[in-house]
Design a protein around this nucleic acid. Structure first.
Lengths: 335, 335
DNA sequence: CTGTTAGCGCGTTCAC
DNA sequence: GTGAACGCGCTAACAG
């Protein structure tokens, strides 16, 4: 910049004013400066300006557990869009579900001067994130309620999603509705609450034999699915496969028994009703909207310590075989 | 930092040295500084250090056409991992397939001091990216060969992928193999080249009636698929559905004709052989590896003007009904 | 309208 | 072993 100023015989200040459309520059001078800047391919270094001005960096950090996960990439897309609308960019990083890496990444992002951080936490406890709350902008949790620290968060209303799905099954005449998922995670336990809520509402007692809570891995899900579905006449006519391993296990189990009438299956997650050769309903969160909301919380921080942490609940929608899928999500592309 | 130094009665310099494990600090002083820094929750501002040192920012820009696209998120994951291994972070931005936005984003990233940029270009011509090549680190193109500028790039070997897929079909006894895809895109035309190559190799002439080149939209793909598949006795017994709209069109067309024996179908893109109720083979790029390779080109730039631009070809793999899918990609997660 | 001074938070280069 | 001065690229706050 100085060299540019020298070349034009003006001061650096004038160049700065001209480039930023500030008042106090003659029109002729401005044109000269802009022309020379374009000719030399000069681009101001925004880092230095922010530094001087003490202005926000226009940078938001995003720490996810896995970038390959479709839920995460939708969330990333939402954060990115909200940031773009605020002239900010996103730094993404993946913790690979390691809490230690997670807090390390938050610290690194802070040191890079981000205006705030959105974190999809790996574990259930978030005490390790407390250090990341001091000294920078807001820290917002996504898809998980804060535990062990006070922070804003954006959640999916899992209770309501499971509740509505289950209610629809009752309306369709089902009376024996199974539930299959780990309830060690927040989402799983919330979904079970919704399941029970719908039963209470319908006046149907919850048959405990139809509620299975395997660990969140493929193996225990598979055996739990087998048990649940082989109860003979007592077998459920419909079921909520309320986490991903459970859904896969149910689809495999049912798929391995051609001929017998499959139960109505409700899954949770990104809408991919084409997954199964038989009717499948999904309770699908709008993860793009969730990401947007999380970024909004970064841009509109609450006064520190003023009020209780905010909590935003995002509704999820039932996407069934009959539902026409709006193309909210871009179709997979071929490279 | 100054306040910290004042509080300890030392100079800012000593603090700087202590924090960076530089020699020339008494062990006692160092411990005092580190202790105080931890107590006050002080974190050095890396932006300022980089500014002073003129050092690389440890930041790589990534411009994709759409973040929701699974190919893009895999690519992003690859770039992120390679960067993490080099103590760098990734700024992601989406151009939404708008070339103007694309070059704007590259300029913005440059102004933010990134060490290099990886771009998945929206269009076929890239002349608008030339401005983004000056004055920063390398600009690397991903999934598309440079046109209108000289730049390093990382590509998927589409010719070879289509070639191998087609050869496998010949081995399986097929003689009438169709091709369906837009060839206006680089990938599409390359795939057609592979298709032809395999025919030459097998000594089977290419039947032009079996090669359809619709535009890259759902509608023209659908009608082209109908035409191709309703040729009566001349109908192909196998076909390459070589872009995403074509694959969907073929699956729908075949799915709408239960009873008749479906042709063998080869798709291109992320491996999701569960898409169809009948056997489906996919030619799948390893987009994570592609992202890694692109980031590597950023970290190991060639001397400017020294040699011709580098071009890296990534092999893609055939994933068939019989192929066991390695879980290279994390399974979809439920919230 | 334009130029000068000062300083953002840090590191290098010298002196002490 | 430690500190003072200077500068990175840029811009508020004042001069002129």
């Amino acid at each position: 910049m100085r060299s540019l100023a020298a070349r034009l015989g003006v001061s650096a200040m004038t160049v700065s004013r001209a480039l930023n459309d500030r008042p106090g520059v003659a029109e002729a001078t401005r044109r000269r400066v802009l022309g020379a800047a374009a000719a030399l391919g000069y681009r101001p270094d925004r880092r230095a300006s922010r530094l001087r001005a003490g202005a926000p960096a226009g940078l938001v950090g995003l720490v996810v557990t896995s970038l390959a996960d479709p839920v995460m990439s939708a969330l990333t897309a939402g954060v990115e869009r909200a940031c773009a609308e605020n002239a900010a960019r996103v730094i993404v990083a993946s913790s690979n579900s390691d809490p230690a890496a997670e807090s390390g990444l938050v610290a690194d992002l802070r040191a890079r001067g981000v205006d705030g951080v959105v974190v999809v936490p790996a574990g259930a406890d978030h005490a390790h994130l407390r250090a990341g709350q001091r000294g920078g902008g807001p820290l917002v949790l996504a898809t998980s309620p804060p535990a062990g620290l006070a922070a804003d968060c954006v959640l999916v209303d899992e209770v309501s999603g499971a509740h509505r799905a289950c209610r629809q099954l009752f309306r369709q005449g089902h009376r024996r509705i199974g539930f299959l998922a780990s309830t060690r995670s927040w989402a799983g336990s919330e979904r079970l609450r919704g399941h029970i809520l719908a039963h209470d509402e319908a006046g149907v007692p919850v048959d405990e034999r139809l509620v299975r809570q395997p660990r969140e891995d493929a193996h225990s899900a598979r055996s739990a699915a087998r048990e649940l579905l082989s109860t003979g006449d007592d077998a459920p006519s419909a079921l909520l496969a309320a986490d991903f391993p459970s859904l896969v296990a149910v689809l495999r189990t049912v798929g391995a028994r051609p001929g017998s009438r499959p139960p109505a299956i409700v899954g949770f997650g990104p809408a991919r009703t084409d997954l199964a050769p038989f009717p499948l309903t999904m309770v699908s969160p709008d993860s793009v909207a969730l990401g947007r909301a999380a970024a909004q919380l970064v841009f509109e921080p609450r006064a520190p310590g003023s009020t209780a942490p905010r909590q935003i609940m995002m509704a999820s929608s039932l996407v069934g075989p009959s539902t026409r899928l709006a193309h909210a999500v871009a179709p997979p592309r071929i490279g």
